[in-house]
Each structure stands twice: as C-alpha cells, then as structure tokens.
Design a protein around this nucleic acid. Sequence first.
RNA 1: GGCGGGUUGGCGGAGAGGUUACGCAGCGGAUUGCAAAUCCGUGAAGACCGGUUCGAUUCCGGUACCCGCCUCCA
Length: 453
Amino acid sequence: MANIRLYNSKTRAEEDFVPLDPANVRMYVCGPTVYDRAHIGNARPVVVFDTLFRLLRHVYGERHVTYVRNFTDVDDKINAKASETGRPIRDITDETIRWYHEDMDALGALRPSQEPRATEFIGAMIGMIQGLIDGGHAYAAEGHVLFDVRSYADYGKLSGRSIDDMIAGARVEVAPYKRDPMDFVLWKPSTDDLPGWDSPWGRGRPGWHIECSAMSHELLGESFDIHGGGIDLQFPHHENEIAQSCCAHPQGGFAKVWMHNEMLQVEGKKMSKSLGNFFTVRDLLDQGYPGEVIRFVYLGTHYTKPMDWTHDKAMQAEATLRKWRGLTAGAGAGVAAPEVVAALSDDLNTAGAIAELHGLASRGDAAGLLASAQMLGLLLPEMGAWAELSFDLAPWVNHLTCLRAEAMESKSFALVDAMKAALTAAGVEVRMSKAGVELLPGPGFDADKLPVL
RNA sequence: GGCGGGUUGGCGGAGAGGUUACGCAGCGGAUUGCAAAUCCGUGAAGACCGGUUCGAUUCCGGUACCCGCCUCCA
C-alpha cells in the first residue's frame, strides 16, 4: 500500500498519513456559500481535494473513503440577494447549487460522498450550542449565543496566534454583550424578514462556523482524518471550528490532519472585480477553456503555493492534453504507474505527477498514461468532447491531396501552398507526408474560416 | 503591529546535501517540394550575505523584495 504523506497545518509538518479506520477514511472540506456562481478561486480546493479523494480511493478502495463537502445555504449574503431580487431564498440556493454542480462537474471533480446543506442540520447545531453552554464554553446574551474563547486553552493554536496578539491587531467587532472581544457568534437573532429557526434563545439563525462543526460531527463522527479548505479559512473559520468541536466533544480528536490550499492569482495579480480580472468558472468555460484544461492548469502548481491563472498556461495545457488524447486514443486504461501514485502520495505533488505523465507519454506507454492521467481526473472519456474531431475535414483532405499530386508532377506548388496557408489560417494543422495528407483542427479552429472549395 | 508563505534557467514549475527534473520556447540534426508533426541531440538556474559541511540551490541564521491572513472570502 502506498505510503501517503501529507503536510498537516496543525502540526506544521509533513506526516505519514495513517487513517483512523482504513475501512472508512473520512475527509471534510469546507464548501461554498451558495449565493452566486463559483469563481475560479473557489474551484481550486475543489480540484485539489478531488485529487486527494481520488488518491485515497485508489489506495484504500472506492468504498472505503467518505468525502463530505457542505453547502452553506444560510448566510447574510444570501439574505441580501433575496431582498435585492425579491426571490425566495430556497430558489436562490437551489439554483446556485445546480450551477455549482454543473461547473465543478466540468472540471472533472467527482461529487463528494455527501453534500449536506446547513439548513438541514439546524437541529444538530442547536444541540451542539446547548452542549457548549452546558459545558461552560458558551453563553447567551441579548438573543445571541457566543463562544467563550478564554474557555479553550488551545484557541489560536492552528493559526499560530494568541488571543492577546489578535486583540492587539484590533479589528474585531467589539459588541457590548461580548465577554471578550474575540468571542464569536454561535447563534444570532433574526428579525421577521430574515430566515430563522426557533431555539432556546429565541428565533434566530446560526453563526457561520457552527455548521461545519455540527455537520462533520453528524456525518463523520467526533474524530475523522482530514479537514481541508483554503488557507484564508485557517483563521478564523477553522480555528473556531476546532474550538467548538473540541469543547463540545472533548473525548474526540476532531480532524487529525488539516490541509490548506494557497490562493489563486490571475496574470500575476490578485483576482478582484475592480481589476477586471475576476472570473467565474462559467466565464472561463464560456470563453472556450475546456474544463479539462482548467483542471490541468490547476494541477500544474503544488496546492501549498500560490497559483497563477494565465492564458499562456491554458494554451500549453491544451496542447499537452490534445497530444496525450491523440496518443491514448483507442488504448485501454492499464494500471496507474507507481511513479505517479508515489508523486501524489508525496503531499499531493500533482506537478511531479504530471512530469511522470510526460515520461509515460515519451515512452509511448499509452495504457499507463491513460490510467495514470485518469487518477488525476484527466483524460476521462466524459471530459474529452472538446478535443473530438467535431468537423469532417475529408473534403479538404481530398482537395489538398489532389492539388499536391498535381504539384508533384508540375513542380509548381503555389496552389498547394495557398491552400495550406488558408487552412492554417482557419486553425487547421496541416500535415503532409509520403503517407498522405492529414488535417487536424487545432486550438483556434474556426470552420467558418475554411477556404471554399 | 501580530501570524504565515514565497524568491529556481527565456517562461512555467518539481525533487534531491554530492549524480539529467519535467514541460514550453530556443539552438543543431534527421525527415519534408517547403512546412507542420515526429524523432535524435543541445545550451541555460537557484534573490543577497554569512554559517554548518569534504561538498548546499537543497540544512541553519540574517538582509532585501514580494504575497497572503488578522474583516465576508477557497
């Protein structure tokens, strides 16, 4: 069995991955707040942890891995959108979830084993909050329930900060009902126009962090193997999750390994609406970047490093995938190459794994390449439509073949060269050899620009 | 102010204390009517200053610069 090593943010060290139960490896990843299309930064953890999911399934067996990723469908951004548009909240969240599935499917991400919605676990959250109050870790005040950070000695351990340092940074909301400025909301009151649920503290709604603690507990238990998400969630979200879960279930270990992916940039700059470089996954798909190409670009950078999305990378990725698809066409998937599994097992070294794929390709091992690439979620049959020969170029092949035969006789190649130039201008790759003429639609293929015969 | 990350050849991007990363681009050759594709070959690196070591791009310390988080955020 491959020895998987993972960098654990909690211990700040790379560790051998030893599952609590090899028959049921459990992973929880923080999912999206469903109020709008996922942007390309949102997609990075999806691809990263999908790749880990695939590796775990490969190593422990498909039926022995449970992957939970939540939908946050109660949130003030959703409420804001509902009041702006006048649409019911459930319409907005259902539609956004549908979009999310479409977009992430396009990136070749497997659906997690379970995708709980926060609103389906309100009861579990209320129970957990009550338990925290009973245990002396939380208190009710003015319709709110707050977590008492001073009651948890290890608060700040994950993100490497002390409560006092954070207060010195002083950008926390100082509310009169808080015992400590760092105390965070577990439950907050709802006015009549906002979604709310009855609770011991009145009608209200949960704070942001409690849902992940409650849902991971319900679905994975009080101890599980891996918890993932973006590095920006490390504080405060994950810190707060740990505090809640460990105080509510002190006998459990909560998540053993914490994994955080770094952020994404666009053409060297932080993605932001004001810079005009803000893209949703749907934007890129609509611009013609195939999902498989996007995925390949993502996998080219190790997940712990900032990743830069550039058009140039996408072009290279497309060329490579086109080449590999050609190489593996008609081949049956063999066995995933051990070097590829080893690279992935080394803290998910996807860039190293891709280098190994290049090696398999250059050795002409189509079966190994196909199986190995598929372990990375690449070269899957359902993702290959973009690379299919979607247009029948046979008439142009015949025409060019004839022109060429005549030119060989007359030694005058002007017509052949003109035809070739016209085809190239339409994005067709022209290959002529002794064996004959071959025409392949290239990256910029445009059937409308084909020369008229 | 606090915490964390980064700096590798023209570009992207990995591993390893000493031996070729890899891809793209470049260059030379084979091939081609010319090209393309393909194949063969090839040059090119480790921000800066110290330290440890027989030997460091790889370990340690410092400097500079860049970035992220500390507020909703993947």
